[in-house]
Design a binder for these strands. Sequence first.
DNA 1: GCAAAAGTGTTAGTCATACACCCATGT
DNA 2: ACATGGGTGTATGACTAACACTTTTGC
Lengths: 243, 243
Amino acid sequence: MGDVTGPKFMMRSEEQIRNHYLNCGVSVDCVIFGFDEGDLKVLLVRRGVEPYQGQWALPGDLVDPEEDLNVAAVRVLNELTGLNNVFMQQVFTFGEVHRHPLGRVFTVAYYSLIRIDKYKVNKGNWAEEAEWWSINNIPELPFDHNLIVETVSDNFRTQVKRKPIGFELLPKTFTLTEIQHLYEAVLQTNFDVRNFRKKLLTTGLLIDTNTFTKNNAHRPARLYRFNKQKYDRWSKSGFTLDM
Amino acid sequence: MGDVTGPKFMMRSEEQIRNHYLNCGVSVDCVIFGFDEGDLKVLLVRRGVEPYQGQWALPGDLVDPEEDLNVAAVRVLNELTGLNNVFMQQVFTFGEVHRHPLGRVFTVAYYSLIRIDKYKVNKGNWAEEAEWWSINNIPELPFDHNLIVETVSDNFRTQVKRKPIGFELLPKTFTLTEIQHLYEAVLQTNFDVRNFRKKLLTTGLLIDTNTFTKNNAHRPARLYRFNKQKYDRWSKSGFTLDM
DNA sequence: GCAAAAGTGTTAGTCATACACCCATGT
DNA sequence: ACATGGGTGTATGACTAACACTTTTGC
């Protein structure tokens, strides 16, 4: 209630507010993206408890009344993956009255981008199972989780075209072909090899490591890493991959 | 709790959840933008109640446990301005533990764009006063409202460059100069008159009404209206005003 | 006739697009 | 030597950016 300015408030004592309005829960749900086998993937967990026990769902949790919202989001991700310092982004808050059977629970949806090779599921700690699902093959999920996945994915696709966040999904060094496949999977298009390379290299966001892939049955590929220095400059202005 | 998948849940009975977690409030706060006198403005209300009684603040209200989130946002706007069917956009949710003195209250920030000429403040119904403030001259606000205004304004500026939503701030018919001034005020830049006109006219989003302004001490200006038909096509693809 | 804002075209540079072949390696 | 993916350049069209003067009205 930056917030209690409205007409209804005229009729509310502090006690009435507590009894009537402060009866809600807030949760965070996290769409964790990874990139593997040429495919954009989402990490789902099998629920260990009712309601919807045993069903695949988004990892999420209630926010503790003594916990900041963004801390809760980071916690959910960390408890599941063991990862810290991961790219996370708040996207949208869902607040339909009946979206949850146990009571009035709002949920704030986030996405995070992780390097799938860094990820080891934190088993005993969490739900029964966790598994990567292709974004093109998400099962039916409980609550409004399918809507959340859609909303968040749309948002991610929009962002990835404008800000160079795609790198967060790749290992520290990567080839131009790898990043092209990543963008093609995320944006569901195909780019011309030469134009894509030109565009990426002229951004100055890639640093040539002067190392190469090995043991492929073909010409070795040059490895690059992401130039975090220039990241901020680019995120502000109009980085696009609209080709 | 699409949402109760986390480790803490292992130790939670349904009763414990209700007692411990469902004690929060959720409010909506609305940054209402208007355009007047060549300036982007925000509608603030003077709080009629404690805490912070008498201070200027964003219009907002607690979400009723039986009320959908987006319905609450529409209600706040309608109760204050009497307007319906207004462009509204959810932007961000603020959930710091101590952002509100009365308890744990999350707030979901929205913005809306209204035609300032349509607006008549709904007096008795609401807080003590309501007034338009230039975005460049917002006073110190209670709670985290200054941060909300900043966050929402940044988001609006980003959106307005990519989607033709600026029209929502103008009367039904308007001149090219008016819309240029609007964009210049919002984006804090100056556009070349000829290039700006060219760009806007080639979008096909403007319909020539073949009417003109009158009684100015200068050449009459051609009046246009917004082509809602083409709106959707444009909002999807890459409408920009980056010049 | 003058003040005030409306309106208009061209050129140069930059950027996006389309397109096809040779290269380096492992087997 | 062949299969596999890595890597490269150029030409065309589209869009952006820069720039100054004439038009129409009210007074």
